[in-house]
Computed example of a mutant assay.
Amino acid sequence: MVLTKCDDYPLHQTPEPVAYAGTDRNFYDRYFFNGYAGDGSGFFAAAMGIYPHLNVADAHFCVIRDGVQHNLHASRELGMERLDMQVGPIRIEIIEPLQKLRVIVDGDGIKAEITFTGRAFPIEEPRFIHRIGPRTFMDYTRMTQNGHYTGWIEVDGVRMDCAPGTMGTRDRSWGVRPVGSRDEQPHGTGVVPGFFWQWTPLNFADRSVFFHVNADARGHQWNTRAVIAPDGAGPEALFDTEGEMAAPLTPGTRWPRDGVLTIAGPDGPETLTLTPVGRFQMRGLGYTSPKWNHGLYHGPLVVEREDFGLEQCSPGSMDNYHVQLPCKVTSDKHGEGFGVFEQLIIGPYAPMGLKEFMDLG
């Protein structure tokens, strides 16, 4: 049987039941959230991924307290039912589509109930299609939305409410990118795989600013967009523009030291200076994690807690390359705000002088 709850909704994109998602084993459907107080404290993040062809659903919840990143991982067999949005102790509820969602966590020593409310209509980023040599590496769509949070998070019995003004970002993406067990087939002679990613969703008093860029090993930008979203804006009021980021690496790492983003705003060029005040390791959400990478099969249901000190994370280890840095942001035209600077560089990247696969800045 392949009929599921989804089939009673007008969601079909092909003549097949919703349980079948094309023919690419790497198809995925994913939720992501992050949040922080106005000064960057109390950082938390959550994610859930569904992998129909791998028959896996996984989820993660993370929170930073006193320099320690506490991570809760969960994975289960999907069983084709994609509307059951709970993986062990982690659940996502859609209260109002494209506007309000809730994350509920009831795990070993880590519990939470937080509600996200969007500030404006989500932006749709350009379709991500990228090939390395002849092989399709990515082909997916993503939407992004800034918002405010209410609720609470508890770690080992210590409950803290979300501070007034707690803000952050959520995204939804779906399509094809590497998930599950690694493909060991070589790319072929002369093909140099490389991946460069920067993403800076920023929150100001009455607007959001978004910028991202994907580039290959030579620095060719194959996907980029900048958007300004006034609070309450519908899709027609989003200001679509261009941006350019200058961000040197912290010596001995692949992490950004700071950043200067230049965008063309509705009132002329605008310069935004990003100053990091902390660090979040994305492996807590499964990204580049050797054990909890997205879509790996663990069994019918497996839940695990993982805690690590941020100062003990070696920047030379590939599973620590992917970071989000909470940042104070200063605009030369619109005052101060706060956001994150996410970066991942895998392999060589000529514009930063990274010649070998694991060179550090």
Rank of each mutant, 00 (worst) to 15 (best):
M1A: 13
C6W: 12
P15K: 10
P15H: 06
Y20W: 13
F27K: 07
F33G: 09
G35I: 09
A37F: 03
D39V: 10
G40T: 09
F44G: 01
I50A: 06
I64N: 10
N71R: 03
E77Q: 03
E81H: 07
Q86F: 01
I95V: 15
I95G: 07
E96A: 11
Q99W: 13
K100P: 01
K100S: 07
L101E: 13
R102K: 13
G109C: 06
A112V: 01
I123P: 00
R127Y: 03
F128R: 12
I129A: 09
D139K: 09
Y140T: 11
T144A: 11
E154R: 04
R159T: 05
A163S: 05
R182T: 13
Q185V: 15
F195P: 00
Q198I: 15
L202S: 14
D206N: 15
V213Y: 02
W222F: 13
A226S: 15
P235V: 04
T250G: 00
P251Y: 10
I263E: 14
P269H: 05
E270S: 05
L274Y: 10
R279A: 15
F280N: 05
Y287V: 10
S289E: 00
L301P: 06
T330P: 01
S331P: 10
H334F: 05
V340P: 08
G347E: 06
E356R: 14
